[in-house]
Design a protein around this nucleic acid. Structure first.
Length: 993
RNA sequence: GGGUGAUUAGCUCAGUGGUAGAGCGCUACGUUCACAUCGUAGAUGUCGGAGGUUCGAAUCCUCCAUCACCCA
């Protein structure tokens, strides 16, 4: 059966992928022949996601490593899966509901979650199928999901990940590594949840800097500079009874609690500790000294709003300023029933603001405040200002730094082992610069906010009950927390706790999920009865929202409604996917995993957190090595983005060029720390490379190379120099590829293979073999070619799995699929053949010399020339004798005869150890030939100049290593020799003219 | 503002102390029996700038310039 002229990737890829799947080729442990294991955890893609170039790149590298290890007989597992992407998934489902005119809150939590699961089962597999198209050899039967096994999950989603997440939360809570507290978080007012730094994008917007005048309290004043001399000395001042502060967000002023100035700022030194008055409400703002205030910036006085700005929060913590939250969860103003806001303010001002702004959107409030400030004369001025504003990457609205109760991992407590693991070298991060970044971040770590106000996610396993103090008194605004993996366990804790206080508690039950109980006066009375304490009368009692309920002596505990950050669950990815907390065989075999391949952008969000969590939970590192890579960009180095319209869709690339071409391009880009610029012309080039291998194999087939061939590990015992040479070259490239992959230098592996397959096998070996197929050495040449092409397929398979698997199936007798073929172990030293190498180098140089001379002399390509052997040493004569057939064919030489000297009108071809000549009388152009020789000589002389310079330098001889000196001498000798021949040839030409 | 990295052929990039490479592009020629997704031959670089270390620097050090990314 004759092969087609090119590989039809479109047709073949699906067929080959189906074959791999049918044979379970990617199953954990498939093709294992040794004890060592190799395991990669896929960085779980978002379940709502689709394959983009970053995924394609990242997964190509993983697949190369995985296929390489599997072929080498490692017990290999590439664990696939997806994360549940809390906010993104909820958004997708809410969007679908919106099309039917419904919203999330029209459903109960459970009913909504059922809808999410329905969506996940129906549409959540997109990216998995796309990864399969890329050729990713994951063990798909083990596909994991960070929400698997969650309560009420549908059939087919029963995994254990939920158990693992809950167990870790409970363990960490019990070890005091997790707490609930009030801190500033990134708040998305659209989704009304905290979000992570990673979900925040900074967008530069045109805005304003509004300057506001805050009056100094108690008649204080200061001298404000108004004129300066040439040296910058103040020459005139004016007396001011107010400070000017600047802000890009005037609406937050209602939460101001202080003003910061630099401790060394002479203008304000005497004001430190004094107060200013907040306009509108008259709140006193303490003037504090803090380095944060930059005397050079603006007036050097900065208003402090600790509840609405991260920097101000930090200053507030240092200086003991109050944090007053003045916004609701939708970023509207929250003024009514806000005791913190009203505290210390004039009642009149508060009433006016409630009337004007309570519930108003932040931007309306901004306009009102600016307008009012203008009218009342405390607006000092407006400057245009372009600045960065954080935006939610999903919601696209401006993020609020927002003060709420959230759950935090006390990162400082778990950071130590994660730092040590890298410092001690137990975990290696590549490129090394990643380690610096890792240290820097971990050494300055902040508490990690792990709670999200969403429904889709792992609901925090904490139940709230009333807080009773030591004296048996009910504590307002606080709760008792019971953390346990199940309600039953939490109930037992609660029963024990409350019964120790009051034995007459009837029972503890769980409050229904969607209840929002209000603690009424009656409830309070029954609580008092339960506690056996006399009720204290509270005349202005207002109902309070609580998380629990009392009903006829039964206490109903409400469960925390927040869910855990998706990164909290994916932080457990390594152990969670291997079956932890059960002690599974997989866990013992594959953990710690071998290497994590991921983008450097999630070094903090994921890599560092996996380190911290695995070490905190199972006291072991999650992986031994981390390979970090950058963002895939377009050909110009621009970030790919929909708005720029420069997004390259990997699936379109696969359709057009085939998965192998995309994969090879990815490998070729993957230099350690390199920038990843993807250019389609390069992908096309690698598609051509696949075609090249295809056609070499096709050529072999046309010449009967595959007849009777079966896979063999060892090369044939060849006699012909050509065959011995290519075998030695093959061994060399095998070593290069292994060394490159071992060092994660994918680009080196790719370019070594490219240079070998195209530059050695196709350009030379196939050409050399042509004349041999008819001669005495035909049999060994066929055997050698079959072996060499097999090696090409094997060595290329990790990078280009489809075309190589197809070729493998089309040729010879195969016991196994190529995906399970044995990776060669021969070393360059075993198959080294210095003699063959030297001889073929000579042959190639001669052929190139003749070709070059012919081309430059304008000899017609088809014309076969006579060649003269003017002088030739013994090695050269042997080389000619052994390779005459192929030299004549490739250099288009009709015959060779000896001549005592280069005749008139002949072109000189110098080679190592001799000189050849092409008599071109009548054809030769003397001027052209001497130009050609001059040029060659010029180049040689330049090189010789450097070599001679070094050799005549005594210090070089003295200080340089011996082999370098020897190499230089040898190079000089060879070049001197060649230069001499060129000069002789030039002299003859001169004599001619 | 702080941190990290980059600057090498027209373009995209390799190159960790021995005198510069690849792919693409470009030019000329070519229907040679694997391949025009090809072949053969060819042109193209004071390796961002300035100093320093060294027998020797694209490579190590210092400063400067420009750019990118990360964190504020």
């Amino acid at each position: 059966m004759a092969m087609e002229k090119t590989f039809d990737a479109k047709e073949a890829e699906a067929r080959i992928a189906a074959r791999w799947e049918k044979e379970n080729a990617f199953a954990a442990g498939a093709n294992a022949s040794r004890d060592e294991s190799f395991c990669i955890m896929i960085p779980p893609p978002n379940v709502t996601g689709s394959l983009h170039m970053g995924h394609a790149f990242n997964n190509t590298l993983q697949d190369i490593l995985v296929r390489w290890h599997r072929m080498r007989g490692f017990d290999t597992l590439w664990q696939p899966g997806q994360d549940h992407a809390g906010i993104a998934t909820q958004m997708v489902v809410e969007r679908e509901l919106a099309r039917e005119g419904k919203q999330r809150t029209d459903f109960t939590r459970d009913a909504f979650l059922a809808k999410v699961w329905e969506w996940k089962q129906h549409s959540g597999g997109t990216i998995i199928n796309q990864l399969k198209r890329l050729g990713a050899s994951c063990d798909w039967s083990r596909n994991a999901f960070t929400m698997s096994g969650a309560p009420n999950c549908p059939e087919g989603e029963e995994g254990n990940f939920h158990d693992a997440v809950i167990k870790v939360f409970v363990d960490m809570y019990n070890k005091d590594l997790i707490y609930r507290g009030k801190r500033l978080v990134n708040w998305d007012p659209h989704f009304e949840t905290a979000i992570s730094d990673l979900e925040v994008e900074q967008i530069e917007v045109d805005g304003h800097m509004w300057r506001l005048r805050y009056k100094l309290a108690d008649g204080e004043t200061y001298e404000h500079p108004t004129e300066w001399d040439e040296d910058g000395n103040v020459t005139a001042t004016e007396t001011r009874d107010y400070l000017v502060v600047a802000t890009t967000r005037p609406e937050t002023m209602l939460g101001d609690t202080g003003i910061a100035v630099h401790p060394d700022d002479a203008r304000y030194k005497h004001l430190i500790g004094k107060d200013a008055i907040l306009p509108l409400v008259g709140r006193r703002l303490r003037i504090v000294a803090d380095d944060y205030a930059d005397p050079e910036k603006g007036t050097g006085a900065v208003k402090m709003t600790p509840a609405h700005d991260f920097n101000d929060w930090a200053v507030g913590q240092r200086q003991g300023l109050l944090a007053i939250n003045v916004m609701n969860t939708r970023a509207g103003m929250w003024l009514k029933d806000n005791p913190d806001f009203a505290e210390g303010c004039e009642a009149e001002g508060v009433a006016r603001l409630i009337e004007a702004l309570d519930g108003a959107d932040r931007y309306e409030a901004r306009d009102w405040i600016v307008q009012t400030a203008t009218e009342e004369g405390w607006l000092d001025g407006i400057d245009p200002d372009r600045h960065m504003v954080p935006h939610g990457d999903r919601s696209k609205v401006a993020i609020e730094p927002y003060l709420t109760d959230q759950w935090f991992v006390d990162a400082e407590k778990v950071v130590g082992p994660a730092l040590d693991a890298v410092r001690s070298g137990r975990v290696k991060i590549m490129p090394e610069s990643g380690e610096k970044t890792y240290y820097h971040w971990l050494e300055n770590i902040e508490p990690w906010c792990i709670s999200r106000q969403l429904w889709w996610g792992h609901q925090i396993p904490v139940w709230y009950g009333p807080k009773i103090d030591k004296n048996g008194r009910y504590v307002e605004r606080e709760s008792e927390k019971f953390c346990a993996p199940t309600f039953e366990a939490a109930r037992a804790q609660a029963l024990e706790h409350y019964r120790s206080l009051r034995p007459n508690l009837k029972d503890v039950q769980e409050l229904e999920a969607d209840a929002a109980p209000i603690l009424s006066y009656e409830d309070r009375k029954s609580l008092a009865e339960l506690l056996g304490k006399p009720e204290i009368s509270v005349p202005d009692w207002k109902p309070v929202k609580v998380a629990w309920k009392l009903n006829s002596g039964t206490l109903f505990l409400g469960r925390e409604s927040d869910v855990l950050d998706t990164w909290f669950s994916s932080g457990l990815w390594p152990i969670g996917t291997l079956g932890w907390p059960e002690d599974t065989e997989e866990l013992r075999k594959y953990f710690p995993t071998s290497v994590l391949v991921t983008g450097q952008d999630i070094l903090f969000f994921w890599v560092a957190r996996m380190m911290m969590m695995q070490l905190a939970v199972v006291n072991d590192i999650p992986f031994r090595e981390v390979y970090l890579h950058g963002l895939v960009r377009d050909a110009k180095g621009k970030k790919m983005s929909k708005s720029l319209g420069n997004v390259i869709d990997p699936l379109e690339i696969i359709d057009e060029y085939g998965a192998d071409a995309l994969r090879f391009a990815n490998a070729a880009m993957a230099s350690l720390g390199g920038v990843l610029k993807l250019d389609t012309s390069r992908i096309a080039g690698y598609r051509n490379f696949g075609t090249k291998l295809w056609n070499a194999t096709r050529f072999a087939e046309m010449n009967g190379v595959w007849e009777g061939h079966a896979t063999r590990a060892a090369p044939p015992a060849a006699q012909a120099t050509v065959n011995r040479w290519i075998i030695a070259e093959t061994a060399r490239v095998r070593e290069k590829v292994d060394a490159a992959l071992d060092a994660y230098r994918f680009n080196d592996a790719a370019s070594a293979l490219y240079a070998f397959v195209w530059g050695k096998v196709c350009d030379w070996y196939v050409e050399f073999a042509k004349p041999l197929f008819d001669g005495d050495q035909a049999a060994e040449t066929r055997e050698t070619m079959a072996w060499v092409l097999d090696q090409c397929m094997i060595l290329l398979h990790p990078i280009m799995p489809f075309v190589t698997e197809e070729l493998w199936g089309l040729t010879g007798r195969r016991d196994k699929l190529l995906v399970h073929a044995d990776w060669p172990g021969y070393a360059a030293a075993d198959l080294a053949d210095a003699e063959a190498m030297r001889e073929m180098r000579w042959v190639i140089a001669l052929i190139e010399g003749v070709r070059s001379a012919r081309a430059q002399m304008g000899v017609p390509v088809g014309l076969r020339l006579e060649m003269l052997q003017v002088d030739l040493d013994e090695a050269g004569q042997g080389a000619w004798a052994r390779n005459a057939a192929l030299i004549k064919r490739l250099a288009r030489i009709e015959s060779l005869s000896e001549a005592p000297e280069v005749p008139r009108g002949a072109v000189t071809i110098p080679v190592e150890g001799g000189t050849f000549a092409l008599p071109l009388a009548g054809v030769i152009d003397v001027a052209a030939e001497s130009a050609r020789l001059e040029k060659a000589l010029g180049k040689l002389d330049k090189e010789l100049g450097g070599l001679r310079g070094r050799l005549s330098n005594a210090k070089f001889i003295e200080s340089a290593p011996e082999d370098v000196v020897e190499e230089t001498r040898e190079a000089a000798r060879v070049k001197e020799d060649e230069a001499a021949k060129l000069r002789a040839a030039l002299d003859r030409l001169a004599a001619l003219g």
